[in-house]
Every structure is written in C-alpha cells, then in structure tokens.
Write a protein that binds this DNA or RNA. Sequence first.
RNA 1: GGUCCCGUCGUCCAGUGGCCUAGGACGCCGGCCUUUCAAGCCGGAAACGCCGGUUCGAAUCCGGUCGGGACUGCCA
Length: 473
Amino acid sequence: MTVRVRVAPSPTGHLHVGTARAALFNWLYARHHGGTFILRIDDTDRERSTAAYEEDILDSLRWLGLDWDEGVGVGGPHGDYRQSSRYERYQQAAADLVASGAAYYDNRSPDELEALRRRAEEEHLHPGHYIRRPEKAVAEGAVRLSVPPDQPVVFEDLVRGKISFEARDIDDFVILRSDGTPTYHLASTVDDVDYDITHVARGEDLLPSTPKHILITRALGAGEPGYAHLPLLFGTDGKKLSKRHGAESLSTYRDEGYLPDAVFNYLSLLGWSIDGDRTIFTRDEAIAAFDLIDVSRNPAVFDPDKLSWMNGEYIRATDPEEFRAMARPHVEAAIGRSLDEEEWSRFEEVSDLVQERTRFLPEAGEQVVFLFEDFEYDQAAWDKVMAKDGVPGILKTAQERLAAVDDWAAADIEAVLRGMLEEMGLGAAKGLQPLRVAVTGTSVSPPLFESLAALGKEKTLARLEQAQRELAG
RNA sequence: GGUCCCGUCGUCCAGUGGCCUAGGACGCCGGCCUUUCAAGCCGGAAACGCCGGUUCGAAUCCGGUCGGGACUGCCA
C-alpha cells in the first residue's frame, strides 16, 4: 500500500507555523516512503474563508518547498480538493448513515441539549454522556452519529502508542447540521476515506476527535488510516503560539527575509530530531531519516532565537553571489530607492563581510546604509566615542593622511592609518572608533578599512570634515 | 467537573535496564582572537518533577502523587 498523506488547512487565516510544521512532517513522511502528499482545503466555514488566505497558504507552502502531488492547484483524481465543492457528497454520506441506522435525525433544542449536559456534569460524567438517540425518531433536524454502546474505541497512535476511549465518554455528535452543511468531523473523515488517505498526521488538539472519526470511518464501511498526533507548538511563555510571539504565520518569516531552508530545518526539529547530535542538515538528509514513529510526544516551544541563529548559519553558508542577489532588495528597502550600477559595486566590495554579520536579510541593508545615504549620527555612539580628548586631533590627522592616499584600496588605507596610530601612540580601538563613528554614523559597522574603501575617498574625507565641524560647533 | 495526552538543562532534542560522574544544539556566563559588531575557537553554569516498587543495577519498567496541556459546540 502506498503512503497517502494530506495537510488540510482552513483558509481562514495565514498559514500558521503549527500547520506548517504538520505539513512538513506529512511531506517528509510521504517523500521518505515515496508516497503521495495531498493538499486539501477545508473551507467549510464559508463565512471566514477567503480566496486571499487560500492563496497565502499555497504560497507559503511553496515557499517552504513543500510541493504537493495532488490537491488544490495541481489537481488529481478527486476534483478540486476543496470541501466547499463536495457538499452533496457529505449530505449523501449522512443520508447513507441514517439509512443504515448508524446515524439519526435530531431536532432537540439547544436548551434540551444543555440540560442533558448539565445533568451529566452534576453526576461527574462526561458532558456528552446523555446525548443519545431519543426514544421517538424524527425525520428532520441535525444528523447525529449513533455511538455504539459499550465498546471502547481503541487505536494505535504512531507517536503515542495505544489510545483508548470508552464509548460512554463519546457523545452522539452532530455530523450534518440542520441547514444541511457538514461538520468538520464528517467532511474531513469522508474526504480521508474517499481520497484513500493512509496516515493522518495532525496536531494533538485533534486527539479527542479521533474516536469520532474512527466511528464515522467504520460506519462508512471503510478501513481506518493510521493516526499520528503531533505535539502542539507553544510560545516562549508556554502559552499557545499566537501573534504575540511574533511567530504566528509563516508568511511573516518569508516577508522578513528568513531563508526557507533555515525555516524548514528549524521546523523539522520541533518534535523530531535526525539523530543525537546533528542540528543542521539538508532536506534530503531529513527525508532519508524521517519517520512518524520517531516524533516526540511532548509539546515544543517555538524559540525565535534559535531560528535566528539557524538562519544566520544558512546565510553564511550561502554562495556569495546568491547572497548578493538575496540582499539587494533589502539594501534598496533600507535606503528607500534602487541602486545604480556604481552604488551596487560599492555594496559588492563589502558584501562578503556583510554576509558574515547577517542573521536575517534586512540586517544586510541596515549595515550598509552609510555607503549610500547621509545619516544622522547615532547619539549614543557619538556621546560615547566622540566626546573623548584627542578625538579632534585623530580626525584631523586621519583626514590629512587619507587625503594623500593615491590608491584607494583597503590595504593602503590600513597601512596609512596604522602608521598614524603608531605615530600618535594610540591603540587601534581608541584611534579607529572615532573614524568609524565619523564615517558610518554608528559604533557598529563592517570592518573599517574595507568600509572606507567601498565608500570612496571623496565621501570619506567629506565625512571626516563634517564630524570635525560637528565637534567644533 | 469529565475524557484524553504530556513530564530529561531556561528552550529544542539524544537517551529505550548497566556504555550516564546524563550527550548535542540555541540561549546565558567567562576567556582567546580582534579596529567595532559578528563569525570562529576554548572553557563554564545548567535537567532526569516527587514518592514508592520491581531489579544485582532505573532517566529508562510498574504504581501513586504533583504539575502542565488539549478537548469537552448544530467551530475547525
């Protein structure tokens, strides 16, 4: 039997990192087994579903490199893979279940239902305990599945092992609403059956729903898939991952210049590991090693710091030419306009040094603004460095010496400046920081000599001049 | 309240009865390098929730306890 797995996001928001991680694990499982990875869109919530969100989800999945073999956008033998186009199928399935006696119509009011729940609760029973088929049959209303009494629903979860629910703790849940629309349980299960899904790997939040899905599957006369309930993702405060953690949607990471390979690598480590000591590895290595059985059972905290570190690792490992191409839009964004050819060559001079210092792409832009734009001095840097004795002399001497440099290259600049330091009896830290602040506006920048070389002689001298005026004034 | 799940450094993982005076990674601290910041290198602090039991021997097996989480809807 060939593996068929799926991810089924609802287009009611951006692709959540939790969903992305689930998609990633399904994808790895499919690729490892040479199986089929399917993308289904669970858009039964017509109110909140939008085409824009659906597009964002597809984009995010593609960006992460999770290509799907069947589903929305690529087609396949099962229609358009949107639940919104399968209402008739769900209604038919519900009708079949009623006909076979596995389900029944129920027109009890919310108040009646509520009373039953209260009674169960008072008796310390599961709230759904008394939600059962009424004595008197009706032919309208919602459709509920009739849970077979007295036999526990037992299944073997790939990550958690044997899991068992007593029938008395499962209520006769609604599968088709009185307006004829299917509930999640019905739609999702019918699709999994119809699409021949072999393994359902999804968030642990759906573990309590699984016996319901198994019951529907059996009532439909189908065989159950394997289940794997993945540990949930939390924020650094231990709360459920949300916007507040700055990590909610995958598109955020794309927009902020993270590399898909890094995000892929990081996500794969949330609830899984390739072995005891490798942290950085390729997709192919992950595919070769992945198995749902190895997924961890405990919830994972999403750590933005570790992702940043990993992104830096990937950026440093990027081919320099490729890095320049990736950095360009961010450099241009930092200065708010596009670069001409001459300016671009300035960036190219220091790009290797910038690459080493970049954890995520926008930082690449921030580091080189001084090459292209006039700037305001960073006040803290100015106060700390420029207020010291001797600074005017350093600036003046440096300006004079540099003015005499003919071959404006980093090595020559360094030679001249080092000569100056020696003559003035200054240490490198003390003598060079004022120049850095004068020329870049901040106390943190790429290495000084290379920065001056890339900036150009004329601009360097002008900035030294300006800093002196600033000090004098 | 009920059902189910989970419990190794702050965090993510390794560990499936002896190889564990518990390993790797992020983060943190210190040092080296050094023109700043990074990177790199070296070193350090840091965990088996607790109590019993099984066993010659337990992070690993069992029981209990405590703690956390998910679900509990004609949402998904």
